[in-house]
Amino acid sequence: MFAFFIRRVTQAVFVMLVISLIGFTIKQSVGDPLREITGISVSAAERDALREKLGLNDPFLLQWGRFLARALQGDLGNSFYFKRPALQVILGKAPATLELVFSTSLLVVLLSIPIGIYAAVRPRAWLARFFMGVSIVGVSIPVFLTAILLIYVFSVGLGWLPSFGRGELVTLFGGWQSGYFTSDGLKHLILPSIALSSIMLPLFIRLIRAEMKEVLETDYIKYARAKGLKPGRVLLVHGFKNTLLPVITVGGVQLGTLIAFTILTETVFQWQGMGAMFIEAVDRADTSLIVAYLVFVGALFVTVNTVVDLVYGLVNPMIRIAGRR
């Protein structure tokens, strides 16, 4: 186990190195940060002097080397826009995204498991087909349109829910700003979570249904049924448990994607998380923040995938990744 972790940590460092290298090679394509931090009538010479001062004129390898040297001390550079260390900015925005992703995941789990199982057991029932069809509607509308439609109906039209932002926040230990502990904060969570889960639901419903259908055809389910076990128990304990492996795999990838790239949902709801921060950084060509963010996300993906790999081992004893060799 220990060796496994050491290996993964080394790999994570490798991933972050590669990402920073690629990040540095492509950051010019994002745009010129000087354009964003100076007024339009500033002379080209003045702008160039500033660029020189920020070290942006140096050869690419020198810039990268400087970044690495600082990164060793935990400094991923300074955001041009926020005028603060990039890592500090990212960590400040992380709670918003994590809370949104958590509520979304909860919603997805609570809806997709019963619907998926139901659709597998009664594939031809009209209700099952209705759910299958409706869930597709969510994924056929771009999430930015879903989001604005939700705002249109529930905030502008009915006036039930707030239209933007996170509402009233409570600061927990370590500066974590949470919206989970005020009714206002919870109200603000509802629409974004629905919008975000609308794009995840059809995938999981389909996955659970397809896997469940396969499992239900297996001999051990038939045996369990023949033995007279309660149908509910057969479905959940014998059936559903065995669909978990693919669900966890896909879920792992999707979870990582969600945390990193809830970009459009956050943008439309003006949800101050990492996704909105990233797209704004791209907008402002805040290249140092972009690179720091990419490195951060790389580490995040390695972590999530490591956890997923570990969970495989628990769910399916046939796979032994941890501690092998």
Binding site: R7, Q11, F14, V15, V18, I19, I22, I26, Q28, S29, V30, V253, G256, T257, A260, F261, I263, F278, I279, V282, I290, L294, V297, G298, F301, V302, N305
Partner: peptide, 25 residues
């Protein structure tokens, strides 16, 4: 396996947006 999966992680970190910006350039 480790190499390819970490490559996948690198790729995932560069979302569609970064890929689009880079390929566009």
């Amino acid at each position: 396996d480790a190499f390819l999966m970490r490559l996948a992680d690198v790729q995932l970190s560069f979302s569609t947006y970064m890929v689009a910006i880079f390929f566009g350039a």
